[in-house]
């Protein structure tokens, strides 16, 4: 046990953000992203641990959302976007030709900046993923998946009497929790959240943050946020991006109390960004 730990520690030396304290869920090695000719992300090396909440912070346009979207290959949907380097999920290269991107996205779910429920009923919104992936074979099973997901997202009590009403009729905060429930319903291993609270009011934000903390028991969560207080509140570790570089990643308390890099310090003390 001790040996193992030391060996991993030795292997991880020189790589920003690598630590052997927990099982590694995803790793990125020299991940670069190009939009056309322009390099938007300059070689990111990062390990994401199982069941942690990892926050990405940094000024606008620093590449944090871009990197997040690499983790479940949502960048594939953007014309002219190219990813190089190696990104692995449980040791499997997710950019390998033989990998099925559809299955990858079922394992690495995503919640977007703006709540984007489908113009369907609340029930159908949740049941959408499980139906696609055949996670429920009977109506009763599907009902159960829907109920469990809504309970997990803390939305069950608010919507249980109107599951057949359109998801677009909910309030912004409820919509975002619906989207989280929708992502949870597919039982992913990792959930990526791209500024999930930026379109929400403080009360809805507080609810979503509480939800993130609860979900971390079962899922690995990576969250991009503009809000440093939010990163401090919800995350175990924080990664600071600046101009397409991953500058620093460490335990959240360390980042906010004793950052190693000058740029990180400037950013968190509000000198730029």
């Amino acid at each position: 046990m001790e040996n193992n730990l030391q060996r991993s520690l030795a292997a991880a030396e020189g790589t920003v953000g690598v630590s052997a304290a927990a099982k590694i869920k995803m790793t990125a090695r020299d991940a670069r992203v190009f939009y056309g000719e322009k390099e938007a992300l300059h070689g990111v090396n990062l390990d994401i641990r199982e069941n942690e909440v990892l926050a990405f912070i940094g000024p606008s346009g620093c590449g944090k959302s871009t990197f997040l979207r690499c983790l479940n290959r949502m960048n594939d949907t953007i014309d002219g976007c190219r990813v190089t380097g190696k990104i692995e999920l449980d040791g499997e290269d997710i950019y390998d030709r033989s990998l099925d991107v559809v299955l990858l996205r079922a394992r690495v779910g995503m919640v977007f900046q703006k709540p984007n429920p489908f113009p369907k009923s609340i029930y159908d919104n949740i049941a959408y993923g499980p139906k696609l992936h055949g996670l429920a074979s009977t109506r009763a099973e599907l009902d159960e998946v829907v109920e469990r997901s809504l309970i997990r997202a803390g939305l069950w009590d608010e919507v249980k009497d109107r599951l057949d009403q359109p998801g677009t009729g909910l309030s912004g905060g409820q919509q975002q929790r619906l989207c989280i429930a929708r992502a949870v319903a597919v039982s992913p291993e990792v959930i990526l959240m791209d500024e999930p609270c930026s379109a929400l009011d403080p009360i809805a934000t507080a609810k979503v943050e509480q939800l993130i903390t609860e979900l971390a028991e079962n899922f690995t969560i990576v969250i991009v946020t503009h809000n440093m207080q939010q990163a401090a509140r919800v995350s175990n570790r924080t990664a600071f991006f600046h101009l397409g570089d991953l500058v620093e990643v460490d335990d959240t308390t360390h980042i906010f109390t004793s950052p190693k890099d000058k740029r990180t310090e400037d950013y968190i003390t509000g000198r730029f960004g």
Binding site: V102, L104, R105, N116, P119, L132
Partner: peptide
């Protein structure tokens, strides 16, 4: 956003079109 939501759940392109884009 509607397409991203569906693709992000692991739907294929044609599933997304059939289930989300066309109904909308």
């Amino acid at each position: 956003a509607m397409r991203d939501g569906s693709l992000g759940l692991g739907a294929t392109k044609s599933e997304t079109i059939r289930n989300v884009v066309l109904p909308a």
